[in-house]
Amino acid sequence: MTVVENPGSLEIVFTLPGDKTRRESIRNIRPAALDQDLYDIGLAIANLLTDALSDIRRVSTKAYAA
Rank of each mutant, 00 (worst) to 15 (best):
R22Y: 15
K62H: 12
V59S: 05
I45C: 01
S60E: 11
L43T: 10
D55K: 12
L10H: 01
D35L: 10
L53D: 01
D37H: 09
P17M: 15
D51F: 09
A63D: 14
F14I: 04
I12T: 01
D51S: 14
N47F: 09
V4R: 11
V59D: 05
T21G: 06
I41S: 06
A32F: 09
A33E: 10
R58N: 07
T2R: 14
A65Q: 14
L48T: 06
L48P: 02
I26S: 00
S60V: 08
G18Q: 03
V59F: 11
L16Q: 12
I41C: 05
A44C: 06
E11T: 07
L38N: 04
G8C: 02
N47R: 09
V13A: 03
V59E: 06
A52G: 04
N6I: 02
I41M: 15
R30T: 11
R57P: 01
V13C: 04
G8F: 01
N28V: 03
L34Y: 06
I45S: 01
L38Q: 06
Q36W: 07
S25N: 05
R30W: 08
N28I: 03
R22H: 15
N47K: 11
D35N: 10
A65Y: 13
D51G: 03
T61Q: 12
M1A: 15
A46N: 02
L48A: 11
V59Y: 09
F14C: 12
D37V: 08
T15S: 08
S54W: 00
V13T: 06
L49V: 04
Y39R: 07
D35K: 11
K62Y: 11
L49T: 03
R30N: 13
Y39N: 03
R27L: 09
A52Y: 07
A66I: 12
F14A: 03
K62G: 02
N6G: 08
I56S: 03
T61K: 12
V13H: 01
F14M: 10
R23G: 14
R22V: 14
M1N: 13
A63K: 14
A44L: 06
I45F: 04
A44D: 12
S60G: 12
T50R: 15
A65G: 14
A32E: 12
L49E: 09
P31C: 02
P17V: 12
Y64H: 07
P31N: 10
G42D: 02
P7G: 01
I41H: 04
Y39K: 07
V59P: 04
L43N: 15
L16C: 08
L16N: 08
E11S: 13
I12E: 00
R23E: 14
L43H: 07
L53T: 00
A32N: 10
T2K: 10
T21P: 04
D40Y: 08
E5A: 11
E11Y: 03
S54L: 13
L53S: 00
T61G: 03
S25R: 10
D19A: 13
T21M: 14
D37F: 03
F14E: 07
M1L: 13
S25Y: 14
T2A: 09
F14N: 05
P31F: 06
R22T: 11
M1H: 15
A33N: 11
S25T: 08
A66W: 13
N47V: 00
F14G: 08
A32M: 10
E11C: 05
L10M: 00
G8M: 01
A44M: 11
R58G: 06
N28R: 09
D55V: 03
A65L: 14
R22A: 09
T15P: 00
S25E: 08
L38S: 13
E24N: 13
